[in-house]
């Protein structure tokens, strides 16, 4: 029973979403299922927060390696929650001056805005910037001319890497107009718009058909492995 009910919810929801695309009268049914998902996901936040708290409290109580970080995690979690819920430093909406909590969290000068600007922005930007370092290390290790395909990949990489910067203009900008198609900046555009587009379209068609087949497997109840496998 624990698997039959979720399976039928998936089947009904899936067909309703499909119908809502084709039948105008069923549009609201599709919207309703999307809303239901959002509500369920929001409720699951409580479970997620509970899991996070449990995980770090246990780490603290056991004095596991790095337990100090758990204090920072829990502290940050509680402070942000407190600031967000109580709307610290936010003035009421001018339209509703009597309502203390009517202001928006986005308002300038609010505590939440401060957290956003001075904590979230630098922290997440730093993590994203790590990509530059990992790309360099991966390029050093992975781009080896092992066979014909790898050589083609290498040549393409050089064209795009140089063509996407001023280096391409410096190296091949002197090519006469009749050979302008061979300038690196033009070649890189050609590679992106022709070879890349062709390859990507093929992959996308394959993925789309894969998604359709997977969707049908789930809708028909053929594939129940996402419920833990086995018979319903």
């Amino acid at each position: 029973m624990k698997r039959i009910i979720p399976m039928w919810i998936a089947i009904i929801g899936g067909f309703a979403m499909m119908l809502s695309s084709f039948v105008p009268l069923a549009e609201s049914a599709g919207e309703m299922f999307a809303d239901v998902f959002n509500v369920v996901a929001a409720i699951a936040f409580v479970l997620g927060a509970g899991s996070l708290a449990k995980q770090h409290l246990e780490k603290l109580s056991r004095r596991d390696a790095g337990w100090g970080y758990s204090i920072i995690t829990l502290g940050s979690f509680l402070i942000t929650l407190f600031i967000g819920l109580l709307k610290i430093g936010i003035h009421p909406n001018p339209s509703f001056p009597q309502a203390a909590y009517s202001g928006s969290n986005d308002a300038e000068g609010s505590a939440w805005s401060w957290i956003y600007e001075y904590m979230i922005t630098p922290l997440t930007s730093t993590m994203f910037a790590l990509l530059a370092f990992f790309v360099a290390s991966a390029a050093f290790r992975a781009f080896r001319a092992k066979n014909t395909e790898a050589i083609l990949l290498l040549v393409t990489a050089f064209i795009v890497l140089l063509g996407r910067t001023f280096a391409g203009v410096v190296l091949t900008g002197w090519f006469p107009d009749w050979a302008s198609g061979l300038r690196l900046e033009n070649l890189s555009i050609y590679v992106m718009q022709v070879f890349n587009t062709a390859g990507n379209r093929a992959i996308m068609i394959g993925i789309a058909l894969g998604v359709a087949a997977t969707g049908l497997r789930i809708l028909f109840g053929i594939d129940r492995s996402w419920l833990g496998g086995g018979d319903a």
């Binding site: 039928w8 009904i12 809502s20 009268l25 109840g221």
Partner: peptide, 17 residues
């Protein structure tokens, strides 16, 4: 049964609208 449910969904949506 899935097909029947699909039709029921459709009917439900119609009634809802």
């Amino acid at each position: 049964a899935a097909f029947v449910f699909m039709l029921m969904c459709y009917a439900g949506a119609f009634a809802f609208e």
